[in-house]
Each structure stands twice: as C-alpha cells, then as structure tokens.
C-alpha cells in the first residue's frame, strides 16, 4: 500500500507552518494515525503535507488561570501520563488512556483526533462534558470556539482552509468532583461503539452539578443535557441514575454499521451513560 506522492515540509516553528498552510493546498500531518491509513487507501491524496511534528512549543501542556491548555501535538500518551492532566483533569487522562493501543497513543495527537472528527473518537465525549474550548490559528490570526461550535458533523469541523488547531482548553476539575469515561469498545480497532463521559459534583447530599457527553452514537458527539437536568438536584441514587440515563438517546439519530445497529447503539448509550454516572458519583466527595 503506497500512497500517492506528495511534497513534504517539516517547519520548526508555528509561523512557518501557518505560512505554508496559508495557500490552502497543503494538509497538516500530525501523528498520522488517521491520515496515513487514508492516504494508503488513496482515500486522501494531498499534494503537500506540512508535518507539525517538529513545531516547537505546540506540544506543551500547561495550567493557566483555572484552565489546562493542551497543545495540539501533545500525544495521547503525553496526556494519559501527564501528572498535571491526571491530577487536575482526570477525565481527559482517562479518555486518552482508552484510545486504540500503545503504539497509536505514542503517535496520535489530541489536535489530530479533534480535527479528524471521527464520530467514534473517544475525546469528544470528554470535551463536551468539560465544555472545552478550541484555540484555532492561521496566518491571518487566531480565534477560539467552543467544542460545540467546533464539531460540525461526521468528519467535519469548523476549521477553515489554512487554519490549524493550536490548543484545547479545559477547566481544572475541583478536587471534590467525580469523573468517569465508559466506553463500549469495538474490539478490532479499539474505537468506541458508544462512549459516555460524566462529571458530577455533590453538595449537601444532593447532586449539584452534572455534565454528560456522548460519542459514537450519532454522526457527531453531543452533550446530553436532558440527562443532566434529570439528575441535578436528586440524591443520585441508583434509581435516579437509571431514570436520567434512560433519556440519553432521546432525539438522537443513531449510526448503524457493521459493528452495531442503531437500536443496539441507542440501548448501549443508556447502559454506558448509567455506568459513567455511577462511577463518577462514587468518585465524588
């Protein structure tokens, strides 16, 4: 399997990378874990690849003003093993550690995953539950959008030609919060048949805060606000969790493929949402 030939550039800094991309003909190469398989099948045949792998500072993970900022080329392994992410945004570390296999996590990047926007990717569930923001850069300037604005459809994002994902911004999780990512694994690829991410906080014996994101179920990941509303204010009993999780699929246009039918996915979304909520509640204090 040999891809079509292409021109290759490996700029050392962001400015050069953005200048190369400004023409609109070039495509970004990050970890290559989605792009190279597509190129080998000749489903993608870019004329020019701009490798972000050597761009300095695009990989950094840092804390700033109550947020954690993760550079686009941080790999899934960088994220799962970062003490900062594990300590202050454990949901993202958990999601990263669930992606594919160790070789994929060593190469694949957070920016590449989100830019590729695979409907079965793991991160989007957590990004939605975290109400993440995406910092976008181009030769013309920068803009920051919410994750909901960023994810447009299956394999479609708000990125314009010449733009790259520069950073993902997530909040620092309060110490008393509980989080969980639960995924039904497609055994051959490791992708999510469905995946549910939950964040909860308790206060005075009641569930005070709930965020739920779901991936794999529909063309794009979504935030399950119906579930959140039903659970907030309850005592978080198993019955409350079941009742809330039962509405996760309401209104969803579920995917059907060789691995799972739409009705199976709809059912599994409820099961995995309930599991994520149960575990998150047990971890919250």
């Amino acid at each position: 399997m040999i891809p079509q030939n292409f021109e290759y550039s490996a700029p050392g800094n962001l400015r050069d990378a953005l200048a190369l991309l400004a023409g609109g003909n070039a495509k970004v190469l990050a970890g290559g874990m989605s792009l190279i398989p597509l190129m080998k099948l000749r489903l993608a045949a870019p004329e020019h690849l701009v490798d972000l792998g050597r761009v300095a500072d695009l990989k950094s993970i840092r804390e700033e003003g109550g947020t954690i900022r993760i550079g686009a080329t941080a790999t899934h392994y960088d994220i799962e093993s970062s003490p900062l992410v594990r300590g202050k945004c454990p949901l993202l570390a958990e999601a990263a550690s669930n992606i594919g296999d160790v070789q994929v996590r060593n190469m694949g990047t957070i920016g590449g995953s989100i830019a590729h926007a695979d409907p079965a990717a793991d991160y989007p569930a957590s990004f939605l539950a975290l109400e993440a923001q995406v910092r976008i850069a181009s030769a013309k300037g920068e803009r920051t959008v919410t994750i909901e604005q960023f994810l447009v459809d299956a394999l479609t994002t708000a990125l314009e030609p010449g733009e790259i994902v520069r950073e993902i911004i997530v909040p620092v999780e309060p110490a008393n919060a509980g989080v969980s990512y639960q995924k039904m694994v497609q055994p051959a690829s490791g992708f999510a048949i469905v995946g549910a991410a939950a964040r909860v906080r308790k206060s005075g014996g009641k569930v005070a805060f709930v965020r739920v994101g779901v991936t794999g179920l529909a063309a794009k990941a979504f935030r399950a606000t119906g579930v959140e509303k039903l659970l907030e204010g309850t005592s978080g009993s198993p019955a409350d969790v079941q009742k809330a999780a039962a509405v996760v699929s309401d209104g969803a246009d579920a995917n059907t493929d060789l691995h799972a039918s739409a009705s199976y996915r709809l059912q599994m979304a409820k099961v995995y949402t309930a599991r994520a909520l149960t575990q998150a509640l047990s971890r919250a204090s």
């Binding site: 290759y8 490996a10 290559g32 874990m33 190279i36 398989p37 792998g53 070789q103 060593n106 190469m107």
Partner: peptide, 11 residues
C-alpha cells in the same frame, strides 16, 4: 513503540 507501517521515513 510505533507502527512503522503508519509512518513515513521522512518523519
């Protein structure tokens, strides 16, 4: 550890 079939030599 990387899968060398999913990487270009130039990388």
């Amino acid at each position: 550890a990387v899968k060398s079939c999913t990487m270009f030599a130039v990388q």
